[in-house]
Simulated assay, not measured.
Amino acid sequence: MNDRQEIPEVLARYVRALEERDGDALAALFAPDGEFQVFSRYGQEEYVALDADVVGHDALRAMMKSGALPPGRGMHYLTTDHIVAITGDEATLRAQFVVVESNASPRPENGWPAGADLMQGKLALIMIGYYESHLRKIGGSWLFTRHQVKHSLPMAIPVKS
């Protein structure tokens, strides 16, 4: 696999780690001092940092533990329009993302009634935005040195002053 294929695969592994809430898998995609940053957008203004930076493997693992989902609830991250630029052992990756939440209905003790819809539960589009990532090839693998999540809608997280 060449670098142009490997770099988007890092993002694919990142979204799988988020979906599975696997802090070890997520941390493994970052350089030891790699940064995870979150931004929000209000109206047509520029993106605003939420002062929620997470730096280093231990902090990334802890971040994943703090965001555990209740049973039956899932998040599915879809990425598209990957733009990769490579200069030696440094690279940037820009991509769009959409997040769909799934809430599975509990299974009835006696099974589903006749005529029930094929899928039981609800889906909702809950996030949309851009990933802007900086990567470095370390030990033969591409790793995030800085990964920015730029939400295109405001997030209900208080901004620190």
Rank of each mutant, 00 (worst) to 15 (best):
N2H: 09
N2D: 09
N2C: 07
D3E: 15
D3A: 15
D3R: 13
R4F: 14
R4C: 10
R4G: 07
Q5L: 15
I7G: 05
E9A: 15
L11Q: 04
L11N: 06
L11R: 09
A12P: 04
R13S: 09
Y14P: 02
V15Y: 12
R16W: 11
R16H: 13
L18K: 05
L18S: 03
E19M: 11
R21T: 03
G23P: 00
G23Q: 01
L26V: 02
A27F: 07
A28T: 11
L29D: 11
F30I: 07
F30A: 09
F30K: 05
P32I: 08
G34T: 01
F36K: 05
Q37D: 13
S40F: 00
R41L: 08
Y42G: 04
Y42W: 00
Q44D: 15
V48M: 11
V48L: 08
A49Y: 06
A52I: 00
A52L: 14
A52C: 11
V54W: 00
V54R: 04
V54F: 06
V55E: 06
V55S: 06
V55M: 10
G56K: 09
D58Q: 15
A59L: 09
L60M: 13
R61W: 06
R61F: 08
A62Y: 12
M63I: 09
K65C: 00
S66P: 01
S66L: 06
G67M: 14
A68D: 14
A68Q: 15
L69S: 09
L69K: 14
P70H: 00
P71C: 12
P71K: 14
R73H: 08
M75A: 11
L78M: 13
T80A: 15
H82V: 03
V84D: 10
A85M: 12
I86Y: 04
I86G: 06
T87Y: 11
D89Y: 03
E90Y: 05
A91P: 01
T92H: 08
T92L: 05
A95L: 10
Q96T: 12
Q96K: 15
F97A: 09
F97I: 14
F97V: 13
V98K: 06
V98W: 03
V100F: 13
V100P: 01
N103M: 13
N103Y: 07
A104I: 12
S105R: 13
S105W: 08
P108A: 13
E109Q: 14
G111V: 03
W112E: 10
P113W: 10
A114S: 08
G115C: 03
G115K: 03
G115F: 11
D117A: 14
L118P: 01
L118C: 05
M119Y: 10
Q120M: 08
Q120V: 03
G121M: 08
L123N: 10
A124P: 01
I126M: 02
I128P: 02
G129F: 07
Y131H: 01
Y131Q: 04
S133H: 02
S133A: 14
S133P: 01
H134A: 12
H134Y: 10
L135Y: 04
L135K: 05
R136M: 07
K137H: 02
K137N: 02
K137E: 01
G139M: 10
G140S: 11
L143T: 11
F144S: 01
F144E: 00
R146D: 04
H147A: 09
H147S: 09
Q148L: 10
K150T: 04
K150F: 08
H151E: 05
H151S: 07
H151N: 14
L153D: 02
P154V: 06
A156N: 12
I157D: 05
I157R: 06
P158K: 15
P158H: 10
K160P: 03
